[in-house]
């Protein structure tokens, strides 16, 4: 019997434990502590005050910002889910050779390994006043003057989110679909189910774990984002992340920390709801 000594296990897990301890757990603990500290125009210092929370939770700006961010998350989730499910379904059920499945899957994956910022910037020539879309629409005679809402708007923000994060839906849903026993589908077809019934009664229920994992990724990425909203919103749109970033740049760390704690709580509630659908360890 091959038994590992506890010592070797300890040595194997100590690097990751130390790194995550110091650069993840400790920072979050620090944020929690600092959220009770006080600050003035120049510095922040130890104290125990609730003012950061009462400021954060007592202001209507906070609620409207959360509402706005949740709206981005909801819209992005809907779009990425529809795209992700459709693309995964195509790859899993309509491509029959593994080689082509890998090729077509990799084509979707490659952009994920390139810079997010460049991918955001790359919408500028398309969406601007003199961008590709406006030029095409004008030359087709569909509009007389350039559409202003394309760039630096909610539209461009959600578009960029969908562009950046659609892959996070494709991969887990594809993974779930590949695990569906094909004989189930054949049995359903033999039993007289049409394509639609098969989709609703077999594929979607069995894809729930994949959908949940993809949703966790997309929702948490959007909720915590501050760079996409800033860049694609032209600095005119608010999200929770942008609000925090503004406080950080004003060196109001305790205020930002209080917002961070609230954001973490909101995100964790959303994640734990979605985690009910999925046993993460079984998915690996």
């Amino acid at each position: 019997m091959n038994r590992k000594s506890p010592l070797s296990t300890l040595l194997q897990i100590s690097p990751i434990s130390l790194i995550l301890g110091f650069f993840l757990a400790l920072p979050i603990g620090t944020i929690l502590i600092v959220s009770f500290w006080d600050y003035n125009a120049f510095s922040f210092f130890p104290d125990f005050v609730w003012t950061n929370y009462s400021d954060a939770l007592g202001s209507n700006v906070t609620y409207s910002t959360y509402f706005n961010t949740l709206r981005y998350a909801g819209l992005t989730w809907l779009c990425t889910f529809l795209i992700g499910f459709t693309v995964a379904y195509f790859l899993a059920f309509h491509i029959h050779t593994t080689r082509w499945q890998i090729v077509l899957f990799l084509i979707c994956t490659i952009p994920f390994w390139t810079s997010n910022i460049i991918r955001m910037i790359s919408w500028i020539p398309f969406l601007g006043r003199n961008g590709v879309f406006n030029t095409i629409l004008q030359s087709m005679g569909l509009i007389d003057k350039p559409l202003e809402f394309l760039l630096f708007s909610d539209f461009s923000i959600v578009l960029a989110f969908v562009h950046l994060y659609a892959l996070f839906m494709v991969v887990p849903i594809f993974n779930s679909m590949m695990r569906i026993d094909r004989s189930l589908i054949e049995a359903a077809i033999d039993g007289g189910a049409n394509g639609w019934q098969m989709l609703i009664n077999i594929v979607i229920p069995l894809c729930k774990p994949g959908i949940a994992i993809g949703s966790i990724f997309v929702v948490t990425l959007v909720m915590g984002d501050y760079i996409t909203v800033r860049l694609m919103g032209g600095g005119l749109r608010a999200s929770v992340g942008v609000m925090m970033w503004n406080e950080i740049s004003l060196l109001q760390y305790p205020a930002a920390a209080a917002h961070a704690v609230v954001l973490l709580a909101v995100v964790m509630i959303m994640v734990s709801l979605m985690m009910r659908i999925v046993d993460l360890k079984r998915e690996l």
């Binding site: 920072p27 620090t30 990724f217 948490t220 920390a257």
Partner: peptide
């Protein structure tokens, strides 16, 4: 899944 801005802020604070 922890929002990146928290990691950034937390490490900066420490």
């Amino acid at each position: 899944i922890v929002p990146s801005i928290l990691v950034s802020l937390g490490i900066g604070l420490i």
